[in-house]
Design a binder for these strands. Structure first.
Length: 983
RNA sequence: GCCCGGAUGAUGGAAUGGCAGACAUGGUGGCCUCAAAAGCCACUGCUCGAAAGGGCGUGCGGGUUCGAAUCCCGCUCCGGGCACCA
């Protein structure tokens, strides 16, 4: 480099990069103006442009900093944002920090350092790394969820949700004040008038009125079994617990414990959260995951009167009401509230011993070989057994069916048959009604249970003949002999009574018919149910948003008025969460309980100064990430979470991507990892819908288009013990074998990160090649949505490209420009304009890898043209190449742009436009296939008709040779592409 | 078990009904150099052949089509999601 002072190497690249980063910061190059308010400076200049909101899933500011896998999506959105800005959009692109959460708190527990101190240090470091990557964020809009000025509005939104209820008639959230007004006016009754306990509003006591309203709120307190994670010292939402019953973060065991916790009524929005997926442009797999998680299923509620007390019924949910005539028993979830009421005093003489729990003698301690002595004991014993089992136990023993008989019978409403009522843990309290009608002939789980408990199997849907044949059965074999349940659709049979006859009907028709009959006799109705549960919203941790809630002397919660926001997080001397043993039934006290002076306050909430105790739980980390995309729009607003005019401008229109293509509005492009499919992305949609219903935002969905970037993978190495060793210290190669400190290690590939000890720092790559090379490499290595392995070997390729392009434009010895003001040669000009068209289309479609390839090809064409002695580099080619490079490698592009004589930044330069006349050639070379194989090429005028092409082909000597005298049976001419002669 | 992806040279990948392997890495040879690095040039799917040229080739087996990596049917393997959800 000392011989060639202007060669584009690491030293020069780093100097250029630092210089331009300083200038961008000084000039506010990436500031996107708002239509109003304090950030509106410069808006008039851009007022005619369409808006574009490009968003990244913001990071948690981790202490170890970024590795090269982290910024893949950030670079992708940056390239896209820059391209769209050059293509005439007003582009909003900002970055914030999701800074509440466990790691800073764990670090604080270990070291005593305040989480705020470490968090701010980490944010500073991350900002430095983002700046060093050349990401063009509007840094005036950067927010951290831990900023008091930010979480004040998180608390404000909480209050909005708290003060709202879901009106099922309107299908939307409304202010609780409107509910109270309707109740007081008498236009709405406190409870269903048909209900035996139904009473009009004025007859309720103040406490009852309050209790009723609290039960309607979208935020409510619930005493129910929750996911308690002792290792984390907190409860967790269902979305944060894995299928194995462990915490999503840290993989610690999770136990079910009844605790009183705050919840959000996300289930009220299940229907809209599922339906509105059709409005948005998201990857099908993410939509599928959300649909699956919401778990809508259509069916019917069916009421079974108790045999000994027909005035009371067991309510079941089924998706197959057409099989009702085949129900032979009922099952309640063990914790179903009705169980205690219906359990019989003693066994019936004929009750088989398995019904009494004999089969559990070896499984549960203290069960006699002939089962429990009475239904009471059986139910109590089985409930204890079921409650003690973890998710993991259930998985391990999976399909083995257990349960006991309650001694009670219910009546099948179709035929009056008395059906024994069991409790069994294969029925879950949290789904449907927590009770099922069992139809063993047509449900495999019910059949397994029926076989274990000697219950009858009655077929009421006739399988097709092939079903019998496949199983070697006689087509007349009764259901009791079937080896498995028939769960498919078929013709109903043995399903008639005096009121309804399903026999012969197809399943769908039978479902509709029997559901109508059930409704007509008051024994049921069509309904739908969801797998989704309400969102458990409180955490027993320190580093989160405090609730704007206090409790009075009676323990009643009160929401604080807006004027008392923010409720700031107090100082504590110990951040350790409550340590409670796995079997300890005591209620854990969160760390905020140690801030006694903060917790005990005297406030005037309208009834004069009184003592209150603050809520000691904090909000989950998802709270702050539910709405940050709104705060970017208007980050300094102290009067509202976002100014409505600014919100409409960025979220609604006149952007091309949002409003035009589906009607959902929202962020035009949201890029992030797939791991938030049912966490952040579901919670944020829920909050957004509440805010929409209450009139605080103007679009029904927050994110119009979602895109999942892939992960960067890297080689990881394990020693003999199976422990990961530092990948950067491993020596050797595939053939000679890999070693670490002299000992052999084994290679595997995994997601780059701290845990696999295979992280590669962007700082190191930047120092070795420059940031532009790193950016370009990450974009060139494959499609943005694909996982791809990091290769230290391949990165040199894009570095060479930048070097070659630089060398074509700048004399490496003198620094003089090699650009001349001459007309571009025809061939080069055609190549250039095809490149422009291709690169623009690729960037628009986020296909940055092929865009880079096209730029390399174009530069190679320029190199060849120079080698052929074409004088200097025509200005047209140089300017277009630099402008096209600018979104990908902005620093070197700025430097070259400036050396081309432009005092203004290339960031705001228009993207080159292709001359359409140059995209169509005068002549085309068409391959000629004979019998499907390419045998010749003919060159014809581009506008030649089929007949002219055919004539040229038939006259071509190579074609004649390939035909070897064979007769041409058919000629296929694809104009401009290819000719196929069929022989 | 159900649902969703994926499989192309030594490697990352390109081509989404029309010339398979763009572009890049790696490799081989050459130029330059005292030498090395860098750079430049050429070649680089497999195979038969001295060459000209031929044959084969996009996980496997079928099909549709003048024509299939691409569409359809049936498999195999890999990855992801869900899973006693009535």
């Amino acid at each position: 480099d000392d011989v060639l002072p202007f060669r584009y190497g690491a030293a020069l690249a780093n100097e250029i990069e630092r210089r331009w980063q300083d200038r961008w910061a000084a000039e506010g190059t990436y500031h996107a103006p708002n239509p109003a308010g304090e950030l509106s400076g410069g808006f008039e200049r851009l007022a005619g442009r369409p808006k574009l909101y490009v968003l990244d899933m913001f990071p948690y500011p981790s202490g170890v900093g970024l590795h090269v896998g982290h910024p893949l999506g950030y670079i992708g959105t940056d390239v896209y944002a820059r391209f769209k800005r050059m293509s005439g959009h007003n582009v909003l692109h900002a970055m914030g920090y999701d800074a509440f959460g466990l790691p800073a708190e764990q670090y604080a527990i270990q070291t005593g350092a305040h989480p705020r101190v470490t968090t701010e240090a980490n944010i500073t470091n991350m900002r430095r790394q983002f700046r060093a990557l050349g990401l063009g964020h509007d840094d005036r809009r950067s927010v951290a969820t831990t900023d008091v000025a930010y979480y004040r509005w998180t608390q404000w939104i909480f209050l909005q949700i708290y003060h709202a209820w879901f009106d099922p008639d309107a299908g939307r959230a409304r202010p609780v004040g409107e509910l109270v007004a309707e109740l007081e006016a008498g236009s709405r009754l406190a409870v269903d008038a048909d209900h035996p306990d139904g009473r009009p509003w004025p007859e309720l006591s103040p406490a009852e009125q309050r209790g009723y309203v609290d039960d309607q709120r979208l935020v409510y307190r619930d005493e129910a079994p929750v996911n308690w994670c002792p290792a984390l010292g907190t409860v967790l939402a269902n979305e944060e617990v894995t299928a194995e019953g462990r915490s999503e973060r840290g993989n610690f065991p999770v136990y079910q414990r009844p605790l009183q916790q705050w919840k959000m009524r996300i289930t009220a929005f299940a229907e809209r959260l599922a339906d509105d997926l059709d409005l948005i442009d998201w990857p099908e797999r993410i939509k599928a995951m959300q649909r699956n998680w919401i778990g809508r299923s259509l069916g019917a509620r069916v009421e079974f009167p108790l045999a000994h007390d027909p005035s009371r019924t067991i309510t079941t949910f089924t998706t197959r009401p057409d099989t009702l005539f085949g129900a032979t028993y009922l099952v309640l979830a063990p914790e179903h509230p009705l169980v205690a009421d219906i359990v019989a005093g003693s066994w019936g003489e004929a009750d088989p011993t398995p019904w009494r729990g004999a089969g559990l003698a070896g499984v549960i301690e203290g069960v006699p070989a002939t089962g429990w002595e009475s239904p009471m004991e059986a139910v109590a014993g089985y409930r204890r057994y079921a409650a003690a089992r973890t998710e993991l136990d259930r998985q391990r023993e999976s399909r083995v069916k257990t349960g006991v008989f309650t001694g009670a019978y219910a009546v099948n409403p179709t035929n009056g048959e008395h059906l024994p009522v069991f409790i069994a843990d294969y029925v879950l309290m949290g789904y449907g009604t927590g009770a099922i009608m069992a139809v063993p002939a047509h449900d495999q789980r019910d059949l397994d249970f029926a076989r274990a408990f000697a219950l009858p199997v009655v077929g009421v849907v006739r399988p097709p003949d092939g079903w019998f044949a496949d199983r070697g059965l006689d087509p007349d074999a009764p259901a009791a002999e079937w080896p498995e349940a028939f769960t498919g659709p078929g013709a109903a049979m043995a399903s008639a009574n005096q009121g309804v006859n399903l026999d012969g009907m197809a399943t769908s028709e039978a479902i509709a018919t029997v559901t109508g009959w059930l409704a007509s006799v008051g024994a049921g109705e069509a309904t739908r149910t969801y797998r989704l549960r309400d969102w458990l919203f409180s955490r027993q941790r320190y580093w989160g948003e405090p609730f704007p809630i206090v409790y009075d002397a009676d323990g009643q919660p009160h929401a604080l008025p807006e004027s008392m926001l923010p409720v700031t997080l107090p100082e504590v001397d110990d951040y350790t969460p409550a340590v409670v043993g796995d079997d300890d039934e005591s209620v854990p006290v969160p760390p905020l309980g140690r801030a006694a002076e903060w917790a005990e306050v005297t406030l005037d909430l309208g009834e004069g100064p009184r003592p209150y105790r603050r809520e000691l739980n904090t909000m989950p980390q998802w709270a702050g990430s539910c709405w940050y995309y709104l705060r970017y729009l208007d980050p300094g607003n102290d009067d509202a979470l976002v100014d409505p005019a600014i919100e409409r401008y960025w979220m609604q229109g006149p952007g091309a991507e949002g409003a035009a293509s589906g009607g959902s509005g929202g962020v035009d492009l949201y890029v992030g990892g797939v791991e938030h499919a049912v966490l952040h992305l579901l919670y944020a949609r829920f909050w957004h819908k509440v805010l929409y219903d209450l009139g605080h935002v103007s679009t029904p969905e927050p994110f119009h288009r979602l895109y999942n970037q892939g992960y960067i993978l890297a080689d990881a190495f394990l020693d003999e013990r199976g422990v990961y060793v530092e990948a950067s210290e491993v020596e050797g190669d595939e053939e000679s074998g890999f070693t670490h400190q002299g000992r052999p290690v084994r290679r595997e590939q995994g997601k780059m990160g701290k845990s696999l000890r295979n992280a590669v720092s962007p700082d190191a790559i930047g120092a070795e090649y420059g940031t532009d090379t790193l950016r370009l490499y990450e974009m060139a290595m494959g499609p943005l949505d694909a996982d791809r392995p990091w290769s230290g070997r391949d990165i040199i390729g894009v570095h060479r490209f930048l070097q070659k392009l630089w060398r074509n434009l700048v004399d490496e010895a003198t620094g003089a420009s090699r650009v001349v003001d001459v007309a571009t040669g025809d061939d080069l000009r055609t190549t250039l304009h095809r490149t422009i068209a291709g690169v623009a289309a690729d960037m628009d479609g986020l296909r940055f890898n092929t865009a880079v390839a096209k730029l390399i090809e174009c530069n190679n064409a320029l190199t060849r043209s120079l080698a052929a002695g074409d004088g200097g580099v025509p200005r047209e080619v140089a300017e277009a190449l630099v402008a096209m490079l600018a979104p990908l490698a902005p620093h070197v592009a700025e430097e070259l742009w400036s050396r081309l004589g432009h005092p203004e930044s290339v960031v705001w330069a228009p993207f080159p436009e292709a001359d359409p006349a140059l995209l169509v050639a005068d002549e085309v070379e068409m391959p000629v296939q004979v019998a499907g194989k390419v045998r010749a090429r003919v060159t014809v005028p581009a506008d030649a008709g089929e007949a002219a092409v055919e004539a040229a082909v038939r006259a071509d000597p190579a074609v004649l040779a390939a035909l070897a005298g064979r007769e041409v049976r058919r000629v296929v001419v694809v104009p401009g592409r290819l000719v196929n002669l069929v022989v």
